[in-house]
Amino acid sequence: MTMWFRIVRVLLVFLCLLYRPSSLHAFLPAGDPPVRADVFPVGYTPEGALEVGVHLQMDRGWHVYWENPGDAGMPVSIEWDLPDGYTAGPLEFPAPGTFMSGDMTGFGYDSEVVLFSTIVAATADGRTEQFPEEVFPFEADVSWLACAESCIPGSARVRLQAGTPRDELLQKAATWKSLLPVESSADALQLDRAVLEQVKDRMQVRLEFSGAEASGIEAFYPSPSLSGLDLGGLAAGPKHVVLPLTSADAPSAVSGVVITAGGAYEVESAIQLPASGPSGSWWSGVVPFLAMLGFSFVGGMLLNVMPCVLPVLGLKVFSLIGSPGEHGGQSGGSR
């Protein structure tokens, strides 16, 4: 279900681009593209992997998308062209922001962002020395969807050189690296439970938190695998997050990134039914049915004591038990 939802979402984005060709061509010939990309080495991990910063700069008013783009969009992606023996890990996304386009909610970045990719050598286990310079440069294709009043897909071929980048880039990398989500913990932030509940005619999932950072919860960004949410209705506050659902079919688990005043935390939990009793689409359908039966019974009883119905009650009783004369005739005939 999730896979089909994402496919349909991507197709809708490109159909919108095809439907508005005049807006697209209005931006393409006008000089530089609205997004520029480059890569630079951040440093080596203790395990010997090379951490790479993927730097995107957006013109004013333009934005690119997080790993879960929201109601529509496409996340930034990178495809490395590496020599034999070298592999790249998945792209790491810092905590995003939220932007609205009409009634659609999107998650991503404006102005600029540094994403992170890690390159590992086949012999990197236990080593801390740098990669030999002769393996450089590494090349990659970075792709994105940039949106403002209209959307333009873009890409760039980037080249990673050996050496130390400018201090300015390293400072940017440090800032954005501090926004990478970390695993939640009982001391900082812990998701105690995720409960499915019904409020009026809508279903929602309520997340309850504890820990030192729980009182400073500011936002929640659902993971790409979590669908069926009304993203425009997400609400976050001290020690809780509320996720309204678009239907009565609730997901079995919830996962995402919680933003607090002190950082970003990855959380995950199975969704529990409320302890007070059944809920969900089955119970919400049974309750109106039982109420209808109750009202029908009460209405039938009232109808039987109405003045216009009273004379008929005697005829109904006689038809059920029969008259004395009829019983006598039957007895005589039997003799």
Rank of each mutant, 00 (worst) to 15 (best):
G333W: 03
F297S: 07
P181K: 12
M104N: 09
S215M: 02
A219R: 01
R20L: 05
V158A: 07
V114T: 05
T118I: 04
R157S: 14
S255K: 01
S184T: 10
Y65K: 02
S323T: 11
V287C: 04
M1C: 10
K177D: 10
G262E: 15
V64N: 05
P153F: 00
T164H: 05
D192K: 12
I217P: 00
G262L: 13
D103L: 10
S252C: 04
F131Y: 08
V317T: 13
L229F: 03
R202L: 11
P244R: 06
E149W: 09
F289I: 02
G154R: 00
K200M: 15
M292D: 06
I152V: 15
G299D: 15
L18S: 03
N68D: 09
T123K: 08
L15D: 12
S143R: 09
R193T: 15
L189C: 01
S210E: 09
L170S: 10
G262P: 02
I7Y: 07
S77H: 01
D59R: 08
P21S: 11
M3D: 13
R60A: 14
R335C: 08
S101H: 06
S22G: 08
K316E: 14
G31L: 11
V142A: 09
A291N: 05
L18I: 06
A235V: 11
A72D: 07
P96V: 08
P132S: 12
S22Y: 10
V52E: 01
G294L: 12
V64T: 06
P90S: 06
E183F: 01
L231D: 05
G299M: 13
A253L: 06
G126R: 05
